[in-house]
Nucleic acid binder design. Sequence first.
DNA 1: CGTCCACCAAATCCGCCTTGTTCATCTGGG
DNA 2: CCCAGATGAACAAGGCGGATTTGGTGGACG
Lengths: 89, 89
Amino acid sequence: MNKADLVDAVAAELKTSRADAARAVETILEAIQRGLKTDAKVAIAGFGTFVRRERKARKGINPVTKQPIQIAATTTCGFRPSPQLRDVL
Amino acid sequence: MNKADLVDAVAAELKTSRADAARAVETILEAIQRGLKTDAKVAIAGFGTFVRRERKARKGINPVTKQPIQIAATTTCGFRPSPQLRDVL
DNA sequence: CGTCCACCAAATCCGCCTTGTTCATCTGGG
DNA sequence: CCCAGATGAACAAGGCGGATTTGGTGGACG
């Protein structure tokens, strides 16, 4: 499923234009991004929780050369689906 | 950040009523749920990708009694943030 | 206000994560 | 509607990160 498909579904459901639906999708995603950046956690009841996560440096292997490499610490984010979402899947 | 906060941010950004923003959020989340259920993957460019994931049965520990327990196989979903989202965080 | 949901603890093992190229697909503006 | 530019998926192997379990409670949601 693409962003275009998502926008289509939203437009159909809300009975709005595709442009409005696209704007809504964009805005919500940006809001989540900002929330993650500022609060480090975005909990959406009945759906799941986005969590900003600091990953320490660790050792890994370059799958191409198969040589040990050092992976620098990064900041990523995880997602914990709510039980409700799990039941759907 | 709560769903209420998210709705507030969206309403402010789109200059719509809180009720409309709430409907938009709900609708989009439901659309993502359906997409995950039917297509097993929802790719949103510049944000990330939701992936339905099958998890095998394994052994765990009851945190209360600290006794080993058997965990049945479940279906859950993961989220891979796009490089763009990672850069923001 | 009543109900429902997320969080928290400790311990374990599953599977995600890394690199880098190629290719398919998607995107968004003209 | 279409094309050029761009984005991400796939693939390899292996180590270690983190997702997961129960049950109560505080807080959120409608």
